[in-house]
Nucleic acid binder design. Structure first.
Lengths: 237, 237
DNA sequence: CGCAAACTTGATGTTGCTCAAGCTAGGTGG
DNA sequence: CCACCTAGCTTGAGCAACATCAAGTTTGCG
């Protein structure tokens, strides 16, 4: 895809500045956009699977993608939910370490690996940008290890709700947060079971911390309380 | 420190090629080494703490370092044990996200952040090298999430023993593996308690999978069995 | 309206935690 | 050199948090 064509394609979709290009000069950003193309996914569709050779790097343009790993007997760990602006498959070499699957309708931007890699050396500031993205992912991963290793079920669910609120910009704190993923996805993300997720949400509702509108829509009624629970500060109520 | 002085300093210690310089040209590697200096740590000594501003990047030269995060009430999650060649504090900007503490006697190589960062743009191939290191750390973090979220105590301890064996090069598979960290460190790494670690090792010993020599020395007697347990393949014995 | 999938709720079970007591090894001083 | 002391490890008994198993209930879709 030529630079012009790519620019045109993105212009028609109303999508101009890839998150990956944040902080890059106009000329540099153009070169990154030039090697990209778009792909649409329906809910449940797999973008790539754990163990596949890394042929592309992807950026989420819209929607939510879940990443997960499996054990031989089917136990699953969701390692992350990605919203617009996040990268997947940025593995330096070899194989994807997780499966990526669309949770909602998703649009991703695809960068072929070979061309993507050459940009690292050619585009000024691009490597720094990737390092920044990577180090942020690592920070999130560390937090998740703390959650999985040491937090209680209550604290995990509270942390999850905080994350979802933040993911949605959390304009008005009293606004509904949208939870598009299934209870099973949440459970596999938090290292719990669907029943524990359900019961914990019921308890939060009873305690006036949240209000359950529909199963995929939750209103936070006491954000402070939720934050305390999430951080593990609270002497467990 | 001038390039010559740095080279001399490292020559006298018998330490020449930093792991960070793997794959860099001789000239490029020299420039990286030039900004570095060494630091020695006794067991239990803290290199930097979670929340400190990132002033240096460190590379482990010898010994073992543990990284950990704390919850307000003191619960602890060890996010990694690092051996020679691994990097710490490679956060793109801001604050360390974990505390780094020496487990054994440790020598680290220190790179001041400001000078380190300028190398990213100046030294050819350096950024790629850092990306490769980063993406490997991310892979390890994903594996650890799977362990913490979905593996049983038995599987976790087996995974840990495998990791320790690999960390030591695992020349002869029948060799002793050295476990320099305390039971508390292991427990906080695996999201378990010291009692569970102890009991699980006792069980492995009784089952002929390992032989406990001393509390910090373990011989693997049945590596295949251990590998099966670690991967979660086994229908639990 | 009816069906299926997803969610909630309840009763019971099990893994790993807590609490408590011995044991062991390594270091210290008499 | 050896007895003592302490920190860390092991072992045991009971318990709690969360999982499992089993109904119900809601939601969304054809």
């Amino acid at each position: 895809m030529s630079l012009q064509l790519a620019a045109a394609a993105h212009a028609t979709t109303g999508y101009h500045a890839m998150a990956m290009c944040q902080g890059l000069e106009r000329q540099a950003a153009s070169r990154v956009v030039a090697v990209s193309s778009r792909q649409v996914l329906a809910p449940g569709q797999t973008l790539f699977a754990e163990g596949d050779t890394t042929e592309n790097v992807y950026e989420v343009v819209s929607g939510i993608v879940k990443l997960y790993k499996l054990l031989p007997d089917g136990r699953r760990q969701v390692t992350g939910f990605l919203s617009a602006g996040h990268l997947m498959g940025l593995v330096y070499r070899g194989f994807y370490v997780y499966t990526a699957e669309a949770v909602t309708d998703v649009i991703v931007c695809r960068y072929p690996r070979a061309r993507f890699e050459s940009l690292i050396d050619e585009v000024p500031g691009f490597a720094r940008r990737l390092l920044a993205i990577h180090s942020d992912e690592l920070r999130v991963a560390q937090d998740q290890m703390l959650l999985l290793g040491r937090k209680t079920a209550t604290e995990r669910v509270a942390s999850f709700l905080e994350m979802m609120a933040e993911m949605q910009g959390a304009e008005t704190p009293s606004d509904d947060i949208h939870v598009p993923m299934s209870r099973q996805d949440i459970a596999d993300y938090l290292g719990l079971t669907i029943e524990t997720i359900s019961r914990t949400l019921t308890k939060f509702d009873a305690d006036g911390i949240i209000e359950r509108r529909k199963c995929d829509r939750i209103r936070v009624r006491n954000a402070d309380r939720l934050a305390d629970l999430a951080s593990g500060d609270m002497d467990e109520v």
